[in-house]
Design a protein around this nucleic acid. Structure first.
Lengths: 226, 226
DNA sequence: CGACCTATTTATAAGGT
DNA sequence: TACCTTATAAATAGGTC
């Protein structure tokens, strides 16, 4: 591929093979990580060198990816031996445990602990991650606030409408109080009232069965000064 | 990488992301196969697209590679009893697995993902955590920079001293060139030169066996104009 | 989707330290 | 072993079809 293009077949020279292995392994892992990041893909990569050394990478959790892979593959194959693989079963714990350790360390680092031993480059990467996290979090928070505000404004508008209507009603009541109670005075029955609506300024209130439908809205609204 | 270099972060545009996924996935699998062929390595690669499609490759057999991976991981973890108690093993796995899931979620949230379903209170807590993390990280970064700068200044001072001394030596050489080379001209042997130091302004350089002691310092110093 | 195009960026073979 | 350098091959972003 370079100074001289090489054929894709096993490299005979042991030293050259090891050198190529190191370089290409790094390249492969880099590409895997990039693909995972760029395209939001879940990736697991396991490489054993010819000398038996293990290198692995997983975008999320090896165990998760394995399981997902098994699920997809299992169905294509015969629903055969249920766990002939004692080793696989028994070492699941080891895998999971390793993952717990890794994730715990990562969490600590995101919290700004255990930073010793990190290079400047790694620190910068961490900083970028944190900034991305904060940025997305603030976006979400803003969205929540805005949604809340919108909901509250709608509620306010409806309440004002109802209010207006009630005022009109009160006026009407004042004038017709004694004569008309037996005709249309049952305000607890909306359907009856609604039928009296003829589109005039003293309209009936809009159907508002959902004033209290949003629990969060209700809770949050309490934190605003009234 | 190409017509225009792109940043390694999730591609927002769905179409572009899918196209990139296809291209890079093919590239990644090709590289994996080449590495396996060239260097006689055992490789397993699993990729799930963001839409859930599975792509995999294994130089031998997935199961084989998984098992080998588990064995290695297991050995690193606990070189102990090869599981006497299956029940214990399973429950430990369950616990660890749950932990992995929890930590994975927490990590995602710290990265600003999966924020839906969090209350405002939880968001605020998360924000505080992130701010604490950034704050501690920046403190560490600043410390590293300052340490680096201090080291560089010390080095600078030493180099200037040596420089000065070398200039003096050059002067002396100019004046005594022909007559005295046999007496003190071996500038490659500092100890000999040092013995000529009598405290005058043309002092010998300080003992500087540690000029190269800090790899990072050395690297950084190269980036300064000489 | 995939195939092809092209200008650029990356990866890397071979060599050196 | 790992890292640097250099010239060159390979990968690929952004198009078009």
């Amino acid at each position: 591929m370079v100074r001289q293009r090489i054929e894709i077949k096993k490299i005979d020279n042991v030293t050259a093979r090891q050198v190529t292995f190191s370089k290409r392994r790094r390249g492969l892992f880099k590409k895997a990580k990039e693909l995972s990041t760029l395209c939001d893909a879940e990736i697991a990569l396991i490489v054993f060198s010819s000398t038996g050394r293990l290198f692995d990478y997983s975008s999320s959790s090896m165990g998760q990816v394995f399981e997902r892979h098994n699920l997809q593959t299992e169905n294509l194959m015969q629903p055969n031996q249920p766990s002939l693989d004692l080793h696989l079963d028994n070492s699941r714990y080891a895998v999971a445990s390793k993952e717990v350790k890794e994730k715990t360390l990562e969490l600590r680092r995101l919290r700004g602990e255990e930073l010793h031993g990190l290079s400047l480059e790694e620190l910068k990467k961490l900083e970028k991650t944190l900034e991305g996290g904060i940025s997305r979090l603030l976006k979400t928070k803003t969205e929540m606030f805005e949604k809340e505000i919108t909901a509250l404004k709608i509620k306010e508008a409806r309440l004002m409408e109802v209010n207006e209507w009630l005022k009109q009603q009160a006026k009407v009541q004042m004038g017709t109080d004694k004569r008309q109670t037996h005709e249309q005075g049952q305000s607890s029955d909306q359907s009856v009232i609604t039928t009296t609506n003829n589109g005039s300024s003293a309209a009936a209130p809009p159907p508002c069965q959902d004033y209290n439908s949003s629990d969060t809205s209700l809770k949050l609204s309490l934190s605003f000064p009234s």
